[in-house]
Design a protein around this nucleic acid. Structure first.
Lengths: 236, 236
DNA sequence: TTGTATATTATTGTATGCAATATCTTCTGC
DNA sequence: GCAGAAGATATTGCATACAATAATATACAA
């Protein structure tokens, strides 16, 4: 378990260490370096980050609140293992929320922000063309970040927080049920979406977003419940 | 500060005390027994509930995560004091989410559940006809619970959690910016909404929900920013 | 060998102690 | 009388100690 970013910890000198541990763990989870079911023992994590269990506990509780970690009393914290049903709920919720976010962002976004998003797209392209698992992880991360950046332009901090949670849960779900890792059409869809936003065509942008979410979900295999629970049992 | 529900604490024997403290505090906040800006000192709360600061801290962190409490480093936890802008974001988000919830609930809800909601409406009526601040508090609480019950029938646990947070934040906002306390037309609107759901008329139910949210927000006075920050400064 | 009971170990839940920070009080100089 | 500084007090942040619970290993009997 080599998931520490000591720089990051020393950087923000003394400013809420629990939060930075939460961020590191979160990255590790959505990057799949920590797979679903992994145990997160307080002492072990504390040792890695060189803090007491108190602060680790705080970080784990945050992750539990956003659904990335499941805490069982007297047993400890584990990376969540969402069921297919929970997976569907994640995407149902995204279908409900993201069109509204895109609509708000389309109205408010500036030219400079559009350019920033275009830069992000080229980054996604780069990862897409690279080989290897590290590139795959980076690709998934960047894909999620695209959605988060749009949410950040919605001008609504609550929606932004909700999207943080939904994107993180999505990554977990994709890690579990993804077929190809990440949908190949995803990036062109991002580009089309951004084009529509730049034109100020909110209706079109909403439509594209809905289809995009459909495509992500369609790339999952949410059937075999039984096989999954078995795998779960063995994975512990 | 007499907000303890010892029964409730003893009831659930040993099963996560932090959570039950969070619930008690949350009720106290949305009931306005703890007004915006109130300080929640760890030692004081711990004394009231007869637990150590450790577990109080955990409860406060949960409340901070759902936005009911603001934690300032080395200063402590305070009941949130949402700005008018944040208030608008709460209702914008509800307008985005609740129609989807109502639509899902309309499809899934059973006759028995409809009856349960009707019982809830008579409860709301009773509080509405009573006098005094206690009845007012109960009225606001019951009004929020109506929305939560509908969310519980959406079949989507994530949306349910989001609504928990949004309803709690709404109560806080109404406490701060409400004119008449609770909108007088609210209850007939609840009834109309439920009627539409019973008929299976999802479109109509969504429409009613949107207007209902508009009415709640219209009953607020979200203008005077300056006056509010002054009051805030004095309230400390 | 397998199943059960018991003892051992490991891990979490909670309380408490100490250091760091903020807040309040008092005092001094103007 | 008031502003500002210095000290006293209170409160939080974090680490640690101990108790409670679960997990594991061992021993024994069928």
């Amino acid at each position: 378990m080599n998931l520490i970013d000591k720089n990051l910890l020393l950087d923000q000198n003394q400013e809420d260490r629990a939060q930075s541990i939460r961020d590191s763990l979160r990255d590790a989870i959505i990057d799949r370096r920590l797979g679903p079911g992994s145990k997160l023992a307080e002492a072990e994590v504390g040792g890695l980050f060189d803090v007491s269990r108190t602060v680790v506990r705080s970080a784990l509780q945050m992750l539990a609140y956003e659904g990335l970690v499941r805490i069982e009393r007297n047993r400890g914290a584990f990376v969540s293992n969402p069921t297919p049903e929970e997976a569907r709920q994640v995407f149902d919720t995204r279908r409900l929320i993201e069109p509204g976010i895109v609509r708000a962002a389309t109205v408010r976004i500036s030219k400079a922000d559009i350019d920033d998003l275009r830069d992000h797209l080229t980054l996604e392209d780069r990862f897409m063309n690279e080989r290897g698992p590290a590139a795959r992880r980076a690709e998934i991360k960047a894909s999620g970040d695209f959605h988060l950046k749009i949410a950040r332009h919605s001008g609504n901090a609550i929606l932004e927080k909700f999207m943080d949670e939904l994107v993180a849960r999505s990554s977990l779900v994709i890690a579990l049920y993804g077929r190809t890792g990440v949908s190949r059409c995803g990036h062109s869809e991002h580009r089309d979406l951004l084009d529509a936003m730049e034109r100020g065509d909110a209706d079109r942008a909403c439509d594209l977003m809905l289809h995009h979410i459909d495509h992500i979900e369609a790339d999952l295999d949410l059937r075999e419940v039984a096989a999954m629970t078995l795998k779960d049992a063995l994975a512990t």
